[in-house]
Simulated assay, not measured.
Amino acid sequence: MEKRRIDEHTIFRFAGEQDTALILQFIRELAEYEKMEDQVSATEDLLKKTIFTDRKAEVIICEYDSHPAGFMLFFHNYSTFLGKPGIYIEDLYVKPFLRGKGLGGKLLSYAAELALERGCGRLEWSCLDWNEPSISFYKKKGAVPMDEWTVYRVSGEGLKKLAENGQTAGV
């Protein structure tokens, strides 16, 4: 398992299957912060399958003084305009009592390093519009909000119905 010492207190490492419970714990803590706890349906078994068996995403664990401090879950997307892959950060989370130590910025910088190493053309993520501390932080890091774009989502029953509509329409 690759580890990278960031400073005297901080280590980043790619998560392994043994980290599944920790990843789920971080997801739940993030959901609580975002006031979305009721939307977490992930389980350890599902995370093991999708992250470690099917390799649909990657996770970096941040350790501070040898203790789990946060995580970043990301996956590759693709830009047809650039003709290159990109990295999309789905979750970036640092435990509240460790915020202000620069860990979030270091995780973002590490993601940028990975993107460049992997020949990616960009690094992207979403942020809730009420989360002013994060928005301010991201702008200070050079991120630009994509105000002219709106994210659309279909999930759950809507996803099933859309799939069924395509089948009945002869698509």
Rank of each mutant, 00 (worst) to 15 (best):
G86V: 03
C62T: 09
C62L: 08
P85G: 15
N77L: 03
D38K: 14
C62K: 04
D54K: 13
E29T: 02
L24C: 13
V59N: 10
L73D: 01
L82S: 15
D45I: 07
T53M: 12
S79C: 13
Y33A: 01
N77K: 14
A42N: 10
K56E: 07
Y33I: 12
I87W: 02
A31R: 04
F71G: 03
F75M: 12
R55G: 00
K35W: 00
A57C: 02
Y64S: 13
T50H: 10
G86Y: 08
C62I: 00
Y78N: 01
E63N: 09
Q39H: 11
F81N: 03
S41Q: 01
E63D: 08
L24M: 13
D65G: 10
K35D: 04
T50M: 08
L24W: 10
I51N: 06
Y78E: 02
S66P: 03
D45W: 00
I23F: 06
E34G: 04
F81L: 09
T80M: 12
A69H: 05
Q25F: 11
L30K: 08
L47D: 00
Y88M: 13
L73S: 05
F71D: 12
E63R: 08
N77E: 12
D38P: 04
G83I: 11
A69D: 12
F71Y: 15
G70L: 01
S41M: 00
H76W: 09
K56F: 08
V59Y: 02
V59Q: 05
S41I: 07
S66W: 11
D45S: 14
K48D: 01
F75E: 04
L73Y: 00
F52M: 11
T50K: 08
K56V: 05
